[in-house]
Design a protein around this nucleic acid. Structure first.
Length: 349
DNA sequence: AATCGTGAGACC
DNA sequence: TTTTGGTCTCACGATT
């Protein structure tokens, strides 16, 4: 059989091995995606082999075999394109090659990331990334006092949420609270949360209600976003970037709910994107002005990477942190993590 | 041989 | 009883 063909894999799993059909694809077939394979794990050795093969074939075909062909004959470097007018939210995108989806999750993935090294002799990478920028943006836009205080005190936000919602921050409660915090940014539904947490829908619903009890200003802000989109047919980010939702007011049912999630997420994701773009200007300007031989080379949504002469790395870290924190821009502090290394993986932290 | 839709999976 | 936002690229399989 052809292991690279989802149709063939699906046929073997469900027609020949008669494993349970867990989820449908968009077109009505039986999905063999990762969450399905997870659920089938242990029922037949083939399942684990598919999981293993999928990880390896993705990494080999997309990165190991392709990236070397992108090294420029002229410069000896890989040059990506950063596209400024592609996304609906105001983020950048990256293509040919996409350097915003270089692996990091698995051991094998990390070994690929470690292959990225600075172009010049004696250079190191300095990486700086925002901690939970979208949740902080949400807390600020909403003016949510409880979240603001937690961030002001540099608390573990998921633990704080767990204590507020469950009364304690046991590992399981913290995990659930983290999932809820994450889901809020995307626009939450009881059904979606119940799926992700593997809990009954009713439990998920009361969890969401508890969350809005704890953070009432978040609830109010989400409603405000939606009613403004209803009235104006658009939503605006922190700096006034607009996304049009002309079809919003007329939408009903499932379609309406989907648009509501887009409105909420665009406001938060787009505002975070605005902040990162402002930070890029500050960082690039400051490096140019002060550090000979240093420069910005990558942006990955909440992370900036610079290449810097090794002896200047300490000062570069200071400059990037200071530039990115954007003191006073939001009602909550923006926290920036930094790292220095001879390759991209090491520069992460 | 080129193009397109689909399913899958890499990242934030 | 029907999916949490935003991307890009891969291989396959069908169509042009």
């Amino acid at each position: 059989m052809n292991l690279n063909s989802p149709a063939k894999v699906s046929e073997v799993l469900f027609d020949r091995l008669c494993l349970p059909r867990i989820r449908k694809t968009g077109k009505g077939g039986d999905s063999s995606g990762y969450t399905v394979l997870q659920a089938l794990a242990g029922m037949h050795p083939f399942v684990d082999m598919v999981i293993e093969h999928r990880e390896l074939s993705k990494l080999v075909s997309t990165y190991v075999e392709k990236l070397p062909g992108f090294v420029s004959r002229r410069t000896g470097l890989i040059h990506t394109s950063f596209n400024q007018a592609v996304t609906a939210t105001g983020r950048l995108s990256s293509s040919d090659p996409n350097l915003q989806n270089i692996p990091i999750r698995t051991d094998r993935g990390r070994s690929i990331r470690s292959c990225f090294v600075p172009g010049g002799e004696g250079q190191v990478f300095v990486s700086a990334d925002y901690s939970q920028i979208e949740l902080r943006v949400l807390a600020s836009l909403a003016g949510e006092g409880a979240l603001r205080r937690a961030y002001e005190n540099d608390e573990d936000i998921h633990s704080a949420t767990a204590r507020a919602v469950f009364g304690d921050d046991s590992p399981e409660h913290r995990r659930r609270a983290k999932e809820v915090n994450f889901s809020i940014v995307y626009g939450i539904s009881a059904h979606g949360l119940s799926q992700r947490l593997s809990i009954p829908r009713g439990e998920a619903a009361s969890l969401i209600n508890r969350y809005f009890d704890i953070y009432p200003e978040i609830d109010a802000f989400l409603r405000r976003c939606i009613s403004e989109a209803e009235a104006t047919g658009e939503t605006r980010t922190l700096t006034g970037r607009r996304r049009l939702f002309g079809e919003f007011a007329a939408a009903r049912g499932t379609q309406r709910k989907a648009l509501e999630r887009m409105v909420v997420n665009t406001t938060v994701q787009g505002s975070a994107a605005d902040i990162v773009k402002l930070a890029m200007l500050k960082v690039a300007g400051a490096l140019e002005a002060e550090l000979e031989g240093a420069g910005l080379v990558l942006q990955v949504h909440d992370e900036l990477v610079a290449t810097v002469p090794r002896s200047l790395a300490g000062r570069a870290v200071q400059i990037m942190r200071e530039s990115m924190e954007m003191e006073g821009l939001l009602q909550v502090p923006l926290k920036v993590g930094t790292g220095v290394g001879a390759n991209w993986l090491e520069a992460g932290h």
